[in-house]
Design a protein around this nucleic acid. Structure first.
Lengths: 342, 342
DNA sequence: AAAATTAATGCAACCGATTGCAATTTTATA
DNA sequence: TATAAAATTGCAATCGGTTGCATTAATTTT
């Protein structure tokens, strides 16, 4: 439209004062007379003035933008985390730029570069499942731009991390199955190059060993946890075994629910023939029959936590110890899919 | 860090050429000699130059950023849409800024303002359930900044819309239930001030009337579709009726799944006592027992469509007819929850 | 009322890239 | 070799705020 954009110079001209004063007035600078401020604000509103963030960012070298890179957007857990992040960040006056790595290291790298070039003030990352090399974050570290990892973290990187105790969660899930009398527990999980899956797996093994059950590598299945993979694992592997397993610990609820339907279709009774434990406590774990025992992993709270830590760092006085690890609590939600004893 | 940021001036100085040439070289401007370009690119890489988007945006008055406002992030449907949008938009070199209205008109308004002030090149919106006044989008319209509505649209606004034929979907769902022998079909849905719910409701009523079933207002329940509300509706209303209904059309799959568990708990058999049809075709509709009949509503494709339309408009030559409506196909996925006849 | 403070305001440079137009260099044509 | 045409490159203004330092105006203090 013809609507010319109003600038501080326009305001200055109309008010017969300098652009400097307008700028300061708009920022509520203490040195500016209250009446002058009022005149500025009034005219600004009247003319529909809006600050040009680019000019401002350019000068201030700050963007008020936070970048987020996640493996995928379309899971309930991820979107809960994002929802939590967005809420906090937005209230603090920051913008969110979001991108997905689609579980690919290469995409993650280019996304990281984009974020860097967008000059985000901070970066929040959950790693792709196959990322092995972390050099793409070096530019951030070098420039002292905070990077927070959550859920899928990189142990080797010196930076803030927000996660759960996956080892403990894996241990508790497995222990619970053992207590229900399971002896042959299948563990289906993601790429164990990633901490989340590795640690849960370690917890699984530790529980087995603590209860004197020897770890059977053939009961351990690591794949990408897509429907296809889960189906393959069950039909071509688990269900083909001479002796069918009596327990299944699978590391997300969608997969657990999906596995449940496949096992039931195959004629197995859950939990009598095979007990199941999932992970996350998504709604889906509550609507299956039987409902699925799972680990409660509060995504929304995690998101809020992450955001708060980052914002505090950015807004607070240049604090020191920005290298910390935050561990959130999880709990086992026992439901019918695993209860074999009363 | 000490790392000074490299600018085109630094490059220019080192190469003994002007910043203009560097700028053009970096943009692969045809008037610049190939050898010069190579020298520029080489030095840029060597020194780790990165373009300052703010300076560039400031000068070009374009941000390469697209804003998205949705009611909530944490639903599978929404995140699929976002995932689709992100994919396309990112490939086209745009950034995504995302925010949530939390279903509140007020928050939607402030988010819109923020987007406006962030000078997004385009805006993608799915309305909050209680938004009645659309004046907050006027600023965009006035400035000719494209706004695309999807799913939850505003009929009265003249702008591009991407959605499904909710009337038809509602009709098909209801017709299917009728064909299965249902006579008393409960319809639980969201705020009918919003097109999605209103149209599905209209479809429901039309199907009833086409099959000579009179519409019973007491079988129609409109609420916010939270778990709590669905539970209330079923327990304090539906299940308290003298004559229990024999069909349920509920407009999202999570709610359908949740409703299913409640009805089963109450001792009803599905589909024998009551047949159920949901909406969306989320994974959750496939893992319940029985699996839930639903309307397939492909979020990811919708997202990609939206993004493509917007990008084409932004990158393409200033096209004309930017006021169109795109209707995506949906289909009824018949599953066990509604099959009462063979 | 003059001098010393304190409060307000303005000057001018700067942030880094872009671009219309002019100037210079190179290559082609006569 | 002089001249026209094409290919390259550079000048200088511009985008809109921000900020250190200087200046001017309003208050206080003697």
């Amino acid at each position: 439209m013809q609507d010319k954009e109003i600038t501080i110079y326009d305001l200055a001209e109309r008010l017969n004062i300098s652009a400097t004063t307008v700028s300061r007035g708009l920022q509520d600078h203490p040195a500016i007379n209250k009446k002058t401020k009022k005149r500025i604000f009034d005219l600004a509103t009247e003319l529909g003035y809006r600050s040009n963030k680019f000019a401002s960012n350019l000068r201030k070298q700050k963007t008020n933008t936070i970048g987020v890179i996640v493996p995928r957007l379309n899971s309930l857990f991820m979107s809960s985390v994002l929802s939590g992040i967005e809420k906090i960040v937005n209230n603090a006056g920051y913008n969110l730029i979001i991108s997905q790595s689609f579980e690919q290291e290469a995409k993650e790298k280019t996304n990281t570069t984009t974020m860097f070039n967008s000059r985000v003030d901070g970066l929040i990352v959950s790693l792709a499942s196959d990322t092995q090399d972390f050099s793409h974050f070096d530019t951030f570290i070098k420039k002292n731009i905070p990077v927070i990892f959550f859920d899928r973290i990189a142990e080797s990187i010196q930076s803030t991390k927000v996660l759960i105790d996956n080892f403990k969660a894996g241990y508790k899930a497995t222990e619970h199955l053992i207590e229900q009398g399971c002896k042959e527990i299948v563990h289906i999980t993601g790429n164990t190059a990633r901490n989340v899956y590795k640690d849960r797996f370690e917890g699984y093994k530790k529980a087995l060993s603590d209860y004197s059950i020897s770890f059977d590598p053939t009961l351990f299945i690591s794949n990408d946890l897509t429907e296809q993979s889960v189906q393959d694992a069950l039909i071509n592997n688990v269900l083909k075994r001479d002796k069918l397993p009596d327990g299944l610990f699978i590391t997300n609820d969608s997969s657990a629910a999906f596995a449940l339907t496949i096992l039931k279709e195959a004629g197995l009774k859950v939990p009598e023939d095979i007990a199941i434990v999932g992970f996350n406590n998504d709604l889906i774990s509550r609507v299956t029959e039987p409902a699925i025992t799972t680990i409660n992993y509060p995504g929304n709270e995690m998101g809020e936590n992450i955001a708060r830590i980052l914002i505090n760092h950015l807004d607070g006085t240049g604090d020191l110890s920005f290298t910390s690890t935050v561990i959130l609590n999880t709990e086992l939600m026992v439901r019918a899919s695993s209860q074999r004893k009363k």
